[in-house]
């Protein structure tokens, strides 16, 4: 009796979970399906779900018209560069806050977070003018710098929460063993923090990849990452749904695949120390 109730419960929760999962995933699935339709079928009413004439011509058109590879490369460089740079600045800072804290450490951390809450738009004008005057508009370097600064507080915070979980004893043991600070960081702290570093790296790569304020406002073509590439399909070309879908699929495919493969790492990173 008890077993039958349990197995019924499994079926109910399985059914419900799959239903809601499917609903949440539907927009993405629909987009991918549409990208393989002809423009005519994309608009068809009632819509066709699987039985349509599958075609890949949209992808060819998109690459031919707006050079997907160029923008994807920009996305990789900008997101990767800004994340690595941010890690480089954040690791020493997080080490300092976790292992040599002072009375003001918490205040500094909160202040850093509060800079993240300052709306980018509040400083859009001066940043735009500075970038214009220094010739940084539409350059990869310019985007790397701004995305790095924008995500720095989050990177520091995440690393801090990871470092704090590393027992101080182990670092002290290394110190007793005669390790210098550099060796302590390289041989002991970094290997132990690799899971944390990985999820920080991933999360910030994704955030930077999808960042759509500075990239839209500070780049147009040469340095434009995929966010800008896709925004160019908004209107009036947006009426070509199949091509829009193909472009969209191309824009999110790399990051969604990366995200799926690393989701376990990522989810741990996402909790920001909220879950012990």
């Amino acid at each position: 009796m008890a077993r039958r109730v349990t197995s019924r419960r499994v079926w109910v929760s399985t059914g419900a979970a799959w239903f809601f999962g499917f609903v949440i995933f539907l927009p993405i699935l629909w987009m991918v399906l549409t990208s393989f339709k002809t423009e005519l079928e994309a608009f068809a009413m009632p819509p066709t779900f699987l039985f349509f004439h599958w075609t890949t011509e949209n992808y060819a058109t998109v690459q031919g018209r707006s050079d997907y590879v160029h923008h994807a490369l920009n996305s990789i460089i900008v997101a990767g560069g800004s994340t690595l740079l941010a890690l480089l600045i954040a690791i020493p800072a997080a080490w300092s806050m976790a292992f040599a804290p002072s009375k003001r450490t918490k205040d500094i951390l909160l202040w850093m977070l509060s800079t993240k809450m300052m709306p980018s738009v509040g400083v859009l004008v001066p940043i735009y003018l500075i970038y214009r005057d220094f010739g940084l508009l539409d350059t990869r370097g310019g985007l790397v710098a701004i995305l790095c600064l924008g995500n720095l507080p989050i990177v520091i915070w995440m690393l801090f929460t990871y470092f704090k979980e590393i027992p101080k004893d182990i670092l002290e043991a290394a110190r007793m063993d005669g390790a210098t600070i550099g060796r302590e960081l390289i041989y002991v702290l970094t290997p132990m923090a690799i899971p944390g570093l990985a999820s920080t790296l991933l999360l910030n790569f994704i955030l930077a990849w999808n960042e759509a304020f500075w990239t839209l406002n500070l780049s147009t073509l040469d340095a434009a990452p995929l966010t800008v590439f896709i925004a160019s399909y908004s209107s009036p070309e947006g009426l070509f749904w199949a091509k829009l879908s193909a472009a969209s699929t191309l824009a999110i495919a790399p990051i969604i695949i990366l995200g799926w493969f690393t989701q376990r790492q990522l989810v741990r990173g996402l909790t920001f120390g909220a879950v012990k």
Binding site: I28, T227, G259
Partner: peptide
């Protein structure tokens, strides 16, 4: 999945 999709 939606978390990875860029806002645009």
């Amino acid at each position: 999945a939606p978390f990875f999709v860029m806002p645009t």
